[in-house]
Design a protein around this nucleic acid. Structure first.
Lengths: 249, 249
DNA sequence: CGAACTGTTGAGGGCCCTCAAAACAGGTGG
DNA sequence: CCACCTGTTTTGAGGGCCCTCAACAGTTCG
């Protein structure tokens, strides 16, 4: 039914790009060995649905590479994105059988999956996994709360600036740059429609506000997706964030 | 500096009203004994600030009785509520020194506090605490995501109906009634302004929409705060929720 | 009574949504 | 190579929902 295929070979955990950030980050080598025995990889293509809300979920897992979105839909079609899943992010809730949200791959994506039952059994006996999952869940909760401020109180222009600065900040931490002073360059991993679903806007408003930020010199565009931010502090002002830039101290 | 005072006597944990729902829910009696040694009670008055965002936090704790709000403010005064704390809810993040949000008591409130260092030390040695905290955090994350749909995609009328049905549902579970058929009666624990901060609206819009729901017979009002819902299914329709009512299966 | 706070109601305007059309890019087939 | 189609994005015109500003009512407390 789905087009993904399991990889015959499971790459070694010690070579894994998300080894030190995913749910397995704190595992000792013997714990990792046991995880290795119950893991398998699945590959999804850009645009493909990974999970439908309400479906039975037989696995949980980590995004290894690529990007996915978590979203919620109303009956009349209105949809709100409630999570943006990047490499190392966790999918699924231990103890829950039915998926609560739609999960869609927005780029080609590789997921490291664990069958639910063995994973839960292992989690109950391996504090390192539960500890790391707690830490990751608390981070997600903080991000969700930051997002709620954006959704509830910011203007369309501020919303766009907030999203851009979130993406820019993430990229700048990946590239180990100073996120405040240097020029930041990145590609938007989302369509205008996905950005609208993220921000509680329409895609037309997203397009208009991006054009406006470009006209005002806050960002530069090359093609539709490639963004340059000449002055990160300026962008963060536009986002309505204060000098601390929302960095949780 | 604060007007709270410690109670001379710490009530016994086994008599505690939140014993089976708070962060201590899964603790064995010996674990509870150790928690008992590091706990103390603090009492706050309605309207009083419990924590300011950015302040150093020397404790974490559980709401024993009363209601508090978690909120985030922008420089220009716009504020968004990001959490509503009811009895058994946890305050503070283990591992974090500085408070990320403002916490305000909206009613008289009693909190069961643990000094941070001993609590964290105990948490690392007591899987039952970390397990329960993980479960509670996952629940909060689900609630936050439901809330994001409300903030991002619902109309003012739907927002009000959503908030009312959330409060009604909570009260009906407390009262062990059937939340679908029976008449539901409750008191609003929030001012119009707090409801506005919850929903990303102005207080005037909140007032207008409540009046409209009353005029249309969706709710009945006695005074400003006492609400009767004659038909829960109708209210949930108005909230834009489908037949399942957002109950996570 | 007056002050402070909470809540209601009205008038007007602005931001963003809705509907619509067109530009643009990528892919396919003639 | 061009015609054609599909999907994404941009831009325009108009309108509605909610915000802003304002006045007033009800309650509590001094």
């Amino acid at each position: 039914m789905l087009n993904e295929r399991s990889l015959a070979a499971n790459p070694d955990c010690s070579d894994c790009p998300i080894r030190h950030r995913a749910v397995c980050a704190r595992c000792e080598s013997d714990e990792l060995d046991r995880l290795e025995q119950i893991k398998y990889y699945r590959r999804f293509e850009a645009g493909q649905s990974i999970i439908w809300a309400g479906d039975r979920m037989d696995f949980v897992g980590s995004v290894v590479s690529g990007i996915a979105t978590l979203s919620q839909a109303m009956e009349d079609g209105r949809t709100q994105m409630v999570g943006l899943l990047l490499p190392s992010d966790f999918v699924g809730r231990p103890g829950r059988i039915t998926a609560a949200y739609d999960v869609v791959a927005t780029t080609d994506l590789v997921m490291c999956c664990f069958r639910r039952a063995p994973f839960e059994e292992m989690m109950s006996r391996t504090p390192h996994i539960a500890q790391r999952l707690l830490e990751m869940t608390l981070d997600e909760l903080d991000a969700a709360r930051e997002w709620m401020l954006v959704l509830g109180r910011k203007t369309a222009r501020e919303k766009i600036a907030s999203l851009l600065s979130i993406i820019a900040r993430r990229d700048s931490t990946l590239n180990l740059r100073d996120g405040r002073d240097a020029k930041v360059v990145f590609d938007l991993p989302l369509t205008r429609e996905a950005m609208a679903d993220y921000l509680g806007l329409t895609l037309e408003t997203v397009s208009r506000q991006i054009s406006a930020l470009k006209k005002d010199g806050v960002i530069e565009l090359e093609g539709k997706r490639h963004v340059t931010v000449p002055d990160m502090a300026r962008l963060m002002e536009e986002a309505g964030d204060d000098g601390d830039g929302g960095m949780l101290v």
